[in-house]
């Protein structure tokens, strides 16, 4: 009795450590604050409901992400709708980091320069414009840096699908980046902003 309760307390504290991560994943999945709050709440409630099926000190974050994505995908397929209005950055009004790395005097390597061209708000907007499958896999692989195996467990899909979906998601994001570069090029008529187009595969082919 006591051991079970003790185990539960340990698991609970383990879960609560990832509240921020689950909330942010929820934001990128749902694309608005209210739904993200609901999804986070539902995820933690479901995790508590099935607390005995979790083994302490395994991958709590992946476990919670799996619950969150499952709930989201289930709701998504039931409603069969993606909301049309996107509340870009609505969840981060006090964003002070307009340009990432502005005050970082890092090595001026080409990639750094490229990254600093974008504000976090801009990247967020591009990411949110992608389909939910694409943005989910990009968050898991690129931001959370889960391995393919972990992603395959979280999303309950084969590793081969992880690979192909991730590849397509990156291509989709690249396309968005190129589009944005094209717009800026047209607007400014300059070349100061274009970076990725240099590596555009479609041109290289």
């Amino acid at each position: 009795m006591m051991r079970i309760n003790k185990k539960r307390e340990i698991i609970k504290s383990e879960f609560l450590k990832y509240l921020k991560d689950v909330y942010n994943l929820s934001l990128y999945l749902t694309r608005n604050v209210e739904d993200a709050k609901d999804l986070t709440q539902d995820t933690f409630a479901r995790a508590l409901e099935y607390i005995d099926s979790y083994t302490p000190n395994t991958n709590a974050k992946a476990y919670l992400f799996r619950i969150a994505t499952t709930i989201f995908f289930n709701n998504q397929s039931r409603l069969n709708t993606e909301q049309n209005h996107l509340e870009f950055r609505a969840f981060n009004e006090d964003d002070g980091s307009e340009v990432i790395g502005r005050d970082l005097n890092l090595i001026e390597d080409e990639e750094e320069k490229f990254i600093r061209e974008y504000s976090s708000r801009e990247v967020e907007r591009l990411l949110l414009n992608l389909s939910f499958e694409h943005r989910t896999i990009l968050i898991l692989a690129d931001i959370e840096e889960f391995s393919y195996e972990e992603i395959s467990k979280i999303l309950n899909i084969p590793i081969g699908t992880v690979m192909s979906r991730l590849s397509r998601a990156r291509s989709a994001l690249k396309k968005e980046l190129l589009k944005r570069e094209e717009i800026i090029r047209r607007e400014t008529g300059g070349e100061n902003i274009i970076r990725l187009s240099k590596y555009d595969l479609s041109k290289a082919k």
């Binding site: 504000s119 976090s120 690129d142």
Partner: peptide, 19 residues
């Protein structure tokens, strides 16, 4: 290079907000 740029761009640009 372009694949890595996209990956790094996401990692560096996306900051998590407090719930």
């Amino acid at each position: 290079k372009s694949e890595r740029l996209v990956k790094r761009l996401l990692k560096k640009s996306i900051t998590y907000v407090e719930p």
